[in-house]
Amino acid sequence: MTDTATPSPPAAGERYALNPMYLFRWEPTQDSHVLLYPEGIVKLNQTAGDIIERCDGKRTVAELIAELQQRYPGDDDRVAEGVYKFLEVFRAKGWIRRQA
């Protein structure tokens, strides 16, 4: 476990990876990315899928944000803010983990 009991919010230099308990993939019948886990399904919207796809334990949060700013040009601040917010939610749900 890399998360502490009282987690700090995600920071630009950190790296996040999918919790190995979850399977992330594209699901054609839902026309979306999904997370699958024991007896559970999470259907992800496009933004959530874009972010989790890049939680590979290698990219830093800053790199992830830069990629999404390229993908969704126009309002860099809003994209960055959105990524931080999503990462915090995903981490709290246990889907992703902060790498040491």
Binding site: E39, G40, I41, V42, K43
Partner: peptide, 8 residues
């Protein structure tokens, strides 16, 4: 039925 179906 414990199927959790969550949307984000």
């Amino acid at each position: 039925a414990r199927v959790e179906v969550d949307h984000v």
